[in-house]
Design a protein around this nucleic acid. Structure first.
Lengths: 214, 214, 214, 214
DNA sequence: AATGAATGAGTATTCATTCAT
DNA sequence: GATGAATGAATACTCATTCAT
C-alpha cells in the first residue's frame, strides 16, 4: 500500500533500470564470465555507466548480487524438492535443475572458484544451499538409495563439476551435461562401492587450513 | 642431434631463452591462471618482454604452447599406462595423474573452458589424448570392470570436472579431489546402472553446431 | 522580521535547509578542503543533493558563499577591533583571530589562492576586509608602533602567509602559527628597518595585467 | 665511457622522453597545481599516457620526483651560499632564490602541505634543506644580525609563507613577493624584539604528536 | 636475435550537474 | 520546493603488443 501510494514515478523508473541492469549483467556474466566490463554491461542495459555504479557500488557487489540471485533460486529449489514424495527422484530433480542453472552461467563457477570475488553474503548463501541439499541427501541416504558417505556439500560441489565436465562440449552439444549428471548420479547410488578415500568437506570457507576430526 | 645441427651460438641462446620462458610461463599460469601478465612472465623468466613475443607472437600462442605441453605429457602418461598389467588400475592411475596435473594448474582449465583461447594444435592434442585414453578405457571395458557406454573422451572430460568439483575446497583441503575422483570412478564402475541417457561426445571441436543423429 | 514577511510554510523549510547546508558545507570544507564532494556535503546536511544545487547552482557558488561568510566575519572582527583602546593591541588581536580562522579552515586558503574559484562577491568582500583592516593599520601607524609603509591589504595577505608558514607543522604542533605570527608582527613593528623594496599592493583583482607606475 | 659506447640510441630517446616528461610535468604542476591529470601531462610532453607511467609508476612518484628536483636545487643553493662572505647577505640571497622557485611552482606548496602526497625521499630532502639552511642561519645569528631564536626550519617554512602571502597578487604583480620577503626579513633581523612566544619547530615529520623538550 | 621503451585502447570508479517525479 | 536517480565526462592506472636500436 505504502509503495503503491507514494512515488510511483521515480521509483518505478529506478526499479525498471535495476531490472534492466540485472538482466543485462546476468546475461553478460553468464555468456562471457566475470571479465565483461562494467561499461559493456551498462551498454547492454541501455543505461549510463554511472547508473550501474549507483545501483552497485563496485563490480564485486554486482557479481555478488547476481550470484546470490542464483544461489537463492537453488536454495528455494532444494527446499521445494523436499516435499516431493520420492527422495531419490527429488535429489535427482534438484541436481538436474542445479546443473541447468550453472550451464547457463559462466560467471557463476568463476565466482564460486575465486574466494577473492566472494562476499560474506555469498558464502552465507552457499552454506544455506549446502544445508538445504543436506536435508535432501539425508532423506535419500535413509532410504538406502544413495551411499552413506556423501553430504549436501558434496552434492553442491558436484553441480559445478558436472557442469565443468560438459563445458568443452557446450557448443557442439548443449545437453551433454545430462550424460555426466547421470554418470555422477550412478556414482552416488553405487552403494556397493568401497567407502570414499577422503573425508567429507567441511563447510566452504575462504581460509581454513585443516578440517579437524577424522 | 636436432640442436647440434644448427649454429651453436645465437641459436643456443634462443633455445635457452625458450626453455626459461616456457618454465616461467608454466609456473606462472599454473599458479595464477591466464590473467598473469606477459610482463610478469618475462620478469620471472629473466628475459625481455620483446623476446617473449619473438618466441610467441601472442599471449594466446604462449598459452597454447603450454597447454600443449601439458596435454602431450598426459598423452604420454596414457600411452605409458597402456602397458601396465591391470587395465582398471591403469585407468585409475591415469585419471589420478590427470587430475593431479589439473589441480596444480589454474590456467589449464581456463584454457580448456574457453574456446576462444584454443588453437587448432591444442584441439589436435586433445583429440590425441582422447584416443589414447580411449585405448585404456576400452581395455577396462573389455574386462567388464567399467561400464560399456563410456568413451575416452568422457574420461578426459571427467578430469576437468573432478578438478572443478574440488576447486572450492582447494585452500582448505588440497587433496579433496581424491574424494571426487573416487566417486566418479565408482560411477564408471557401476556396471549395473542404466545406460547413460545422452549419447557419447563427438570429438571436441571448436565450432560445431550440432551432431545430428540420436 | 525578514523571515516573518514571507510565507511561513515552505519558506521556513527552505531557510532551515539552507542553514543546515551552510553549516555542513562550512564544516566539511574546513576539515578537508575544496575537494569534498557535493554528495558528502548533502549527506552531512541531511538533505538531498538536488536541494544543494537548488540553493547553490554550482559548487563554486557554494564555496563562494562560505568564503563570504568567513570574510564577513573577519570584516566584523576588524571593525569591532577598531573601537578597542590600544591600536597595536587591536591589530595584533585581529591578526591572531584571522590566522586562527584560517588555520581552522583548509578550504579558505585554497579558494583565496585560486582565482578561478573566486566570485566578484568574494573579491568585494576581500576589498571590504582590506579597507577595514586599513583603518586598524593606519591607527597603529599613526602611533608610530608600526612601520609606515604597510597597508591593510598587506596585513590581510600576511594572514594567509602566516598560516601557510605553519601549515606543514599543523599535525605535529597545531599552535605553531603563533610563532610565525609573532615573527611577522616583529617585522611590522621594525620601524627602524629600511623602506620595503616593492610598492604596496593595489586592490586585489582577478585579472589585472600590471599596475603601471613605480 | 660505458654509457657513451653502449646503446646510444634507445637510451637517448628514453632520456629525451624523460626530459620532455619532466619538463611538461614541472610546468603543468607549477602552473595548475597537483590536480593536473596525468593525461594532460602526457599530452603536453607529446608522449603517450603509458609512457608517463613507465617512467613514474604513479602520479605521486612523478610529483615526488619533481618536488625532489626543486628541493635538491634549493639544498645546493643553500650549501653554495655558505661560502659567500657576508652571512646576512648569503641568507637573504638564499631566501630570495627560494621564494623565486616557489613562486614559479604551484604544486610545490601543495605537496609540502599535504603529508599524504609525500614520499620518504621528499621528507628526507626537506630535512637536508633545513639542515643546510640551519648552517646559513647559525652563521648569521653568530654575527648578531639575526635574532637568536630562529632556526633553519623556520627559514624554510617562511619561504612557503612568503610565497603564499604574495600569491593572490601573482597575476597583477608578479614581483610582490619581494615586498613580503623584505618584511619577513626585517622580522628576522629585529633583534630587539621579545623572544618568540612559541618553541621552534621539531624536524618536519608526518605524524608526530608533541615536540619533546622545552 | 634481444632489448626494453613506447603505444594506446581498456578498466573500474568518482563526481558535478541535470531532470523527471 | 525537495528528492534522489541518471548522466557522462574525467581520472589513475594496466597490459598486450609494436618497434627502434
Amino acid at each position: 500500500m505504502t509503495e503503491r501510494a507514494v512515488a510511483p514515478g521515480a521509483r518505478a523508473d529506478m526499479v525498471r533500470n535495476r531490472r534492466l541492469l540485472l538482466a543485462a549483467a546476468t546475461e553478460a556474466f553468464a555468456e562471457r564470465g566475470v571479465d565483461v566490463s562494467m561499461g559493456e554491461i551498462a551498454q547492454r542495459a541501455g543505461i549510463a555507466k554511472g547508473t550501474v555504479f549507483r545501483h552497485f557500488p563496485s563490480k564485486n557487489d554486482l557479481l555478488a548480487a547476481i550470484t546470490l540471485q542464483l544461489l537463492d533460486g537453488l536454495v528455494a529449489d532444494a527446499e521445494g524438492s523436499g516435499t516431493a514424495d520420492d527422495p531419490v527422484t527429488a535429489l535427482r530433480a534438484f541436481m538436474t535443475r542445479g546443473v541447468e542453472v550453472l550451464v547457463a552461467d559462466r560467471a557463476f563457477c568463476e565466482v564460486i572458484g575465486r574466494p577473492s570475488l566472494q562476499h560474506a553474503e555469498v558464502r552465507g548463501a552457499i552454506d544455506r544451499l549446502c544445508e538445504a541439499v543436506g536435508v535432501l541427501t539425508d532423506r535419500a541416504k535413509a532410504q538406502g538409495a544413495v551411499r552413506g558417505d556423501v553430504t549436501g556439500t558434496d552434492i553442491v560441489l558436484l553441480l559445478g563439476g558436472i557442469h565443468q565436465t560438459a563445458l568443452p562440449l557446450l557448443e557442439q552439444d548443449p545437453q551433454a551435461w545430462r550424460r555426466y549428471l547421470a554418470l555422477a548420479f550412478d556414482g552416488l547410488c553405487n552403494t556397493g562401492a568401497a567407502a570414499l578415500p577422503h573425508p567429507p568437506p567441511a563447510p566452504l570457507r575462504e581460509h581454513q587450513v585443516t578440517s579437524p576430526g577424522a
